[in-house]
Amino acid sequence: MQVIEVKNLKKAFGDNPVLDGVDLSVNKSEVVVIMGPSGSGKSTFLRCLTYLEEPNAGIIRIGPHELHTGGKLDRKRKKEIRELRKKTGFVFQSFNLFPNKTAIENVMEGPLTIYGVTPNEAKELAESLLVKVGLGDRCDHYPSQLSGGQQQRVAIARALSLNPTVMLYDEPTSALDPELVREVLQVIKDLAEEGMTMVIVTHEMNFAREVADRVIFMDGGVIVEQGDPKELFDNPKEERTKRFLTMAE
């Protein structure tokens, strides 16, 4: 069953086309890693999926929520976009934790505001999620009291708090010191083993090799090549992919 379906997604900033007709289908429990040089449109693609950027053309379906571009941004459409976002956990490169809230409050915020659960229920859920990402003993710490790796794990717990159908990661480890990368990747890997459907923009090749079911190479706003990680890394067919991989090594 396909959980994500994207057809002919286009996005331009002014006259500058960033996405030039991207198609993507992601199966349930599939882990897709998107790679590519900077400016290739991979982050924009991910952000378009939850309408953090509004695409200029194309169709996006996540779970049962389908959005066509070009509609008038009225009340109904705003609601549709919100419904799509509720089912899509988004993890940012710069974490974007709420600095004035403790770790547990960060994770409670979504369920409290979006689903209107009671504070006790939210707390229980948040606690279990923080335990899951290995931060059960950091519940009452503020983000400023946590390392980058810990902050990103809180951010993952926060994204999980709304029980999303898919998880999207926009370079989740790019802002981290090298020694902190592993703990974040481990959490993502655990989620993969649980069968979470995920799309991950990252430069971590070893991680992609280990965890991804499929690697997508993007350049110039299009998908240049995709396939099994082993196949794509060891035996790239396209010239651009080869060049990128040589540079990255």
Binding site: L52, R82, R85, K86, F90, G110, T113, I114
Partner: peptide, 8 residues
Amino acid sequence: EAAISMGM
């Protein structure tokens, strides 16, 4: 972005 990405 973090807030609206949750569906707020």
